[in-house]
């Protein structure tokens, strides 16, 4: 009976999931979280530090950690890795110039051992903008197919502005985590 199984038991009772939202600055992480929680998205300052949102989704309680993406604070991301069930990587699909940066940071993140068990949802955000790359193109640029075969992952196009695609993404993420953690259901 290790600590991990005790934690799992507690979690199972409360049906809790811990979800970490990361991505470059200006990708729309905070907007996604607020939008999915039905809050006002018209005044959002760039995140200095992090926000935590707890919300009920289906029969689960999601603890969403939305961590600022500015370059100076990216090094603090690792402080949030512990016990992450789901990882949401948000991409600004209209920011073509920084896709290299985006790939670099994601690759680094996926090397992290503490995140190795987490399901990965990639949001190709800002699909409502005309010049945005499609989710397929983003997947190719980020080379997602080359990822470790054991990783559960999916890419979903979305717009935090209109709300399109957000539920589809979270549905998949929550189901995927549930099927891994709450095996007894």
């Amino acid at each position: 009976m290790g600590l991990l199984s005790i934690i799992r038991k507690i979690k199972r009772k409360e049906k809790e999931m811990r979800i970490l939202m990361v991505g470059l600055d200006n990708s729309g992480k905070t907007t996604i979280v607020l939008k999915i929680n039905g809050e006002d998205t018209s005044v959002i300052s760039p995140t200095l530090g992090f926000n935590i949102k707890t919300m009920t989704y289906d029969k689960y309680t999601l603890n969403i950690w939305d961590v600022g993406g500015q370059k100076t604070i990216r090094s603090y991301w690792r402080n949030y890795f512990e016990q992450t069930d789901g990882l949401v990587w948000v991409v600004d699909s209209s920011d073509l110039r920084r896709l290299d940066d985006c790939k670099f940071e994601l690759d680094n993140l996926l090397k992290e051992e503490r995140l190795s068990g987490a399901s990965l949802l990639v949001f190709a955000n800002k699909q409502d903008i005309q010049g945005a790359l499609s989710p397929n193109e983003i997947a190719k640029v980020l080379n997602l197919d080359a990822m470790d075969k054991t990783r559960h992952w999916r890419i979903v196009g979305c717009s935090a502005y209109t709300g399109e695609g957000l539920l589809e993404g979270f549905d998949w993420l929550v189901q995927d985590i549930a099927s891994r953690i709450y095996v007894l259901d």
Binding site: L96, L99, K103, L133, E137, K140, V141, L142, N143
Partner: peptide
């Protein structure tokens, strides 16, 4: 992958 950036 850089061929996708050509669509500026």
């Amino acid at each position: 992958q850089s061929n996708y950036k050509i669509t500026d």
